[in-house]
């Protein structure tokens, strides 16, 4: 069972790496933002699995914290990035 869960962690980590490629390539700020959110969600899944594999119940607390603050960060991305995104929405896709 532990081996299976660890393999699942590895699979999610591979998906995280794919999300990372999306952060690197962009092209727009919105794409990067969504990829960062994907990494947050994948990180929560990894934490929950890792907590079960390594028998660390406190990893669930880290996952809870990450879930709350990743949501908060995504809202701040939109709120603070929005005016600049609207201002040069077309420019950002060209320059990146």
């Amino acid at each position: 069972m532990t081996e299976f869960l660890t393999a699942a962690v590895g699979f999610i980590l591979a998906m995280l790496a794919l999300g990372l490629v999306s952060i690197l390539r962009g092209p727009g700020d919105a794409d990067r933002m969504m990829a960062a959110q994907l990494i947050g969600t994948g990180g929560i899944a990894t934490l929950l699995l890792l907590g079960t594999v390594a028998n660390l119940p406190a990893a669930i607390d880290v996952a809870l914290t990450l879930a709350l603050l990743a949501t908060f960060a995504s809202i701040a991305f939109v709120k603070k990035g929005l005016s600049s995104l609207e201002a040069d929405g077309s420019a950002s896709t060209e320059t990146t």
């Binding site: 995280l16 999300g19 990372l20 952060i23 962009g26 700020d29 990067r32 933002m33 990829a35 960062a36 990494i39 947050g40 990180g43 990450l66 990743a70 960060a73 991305f77 990035g81 600049s84 990146t96």
Partner: peptide, 14 residues
């Protein structure tokens, strides 16, 4: 700077 910030947030999670 904006892309670097997004990268930094993802870095913190990892």
């Amino acid at each position: 700077t904006y892309s670097a910030t997004v990268g930094y947030v993802a870095y913190g999670l990892l």
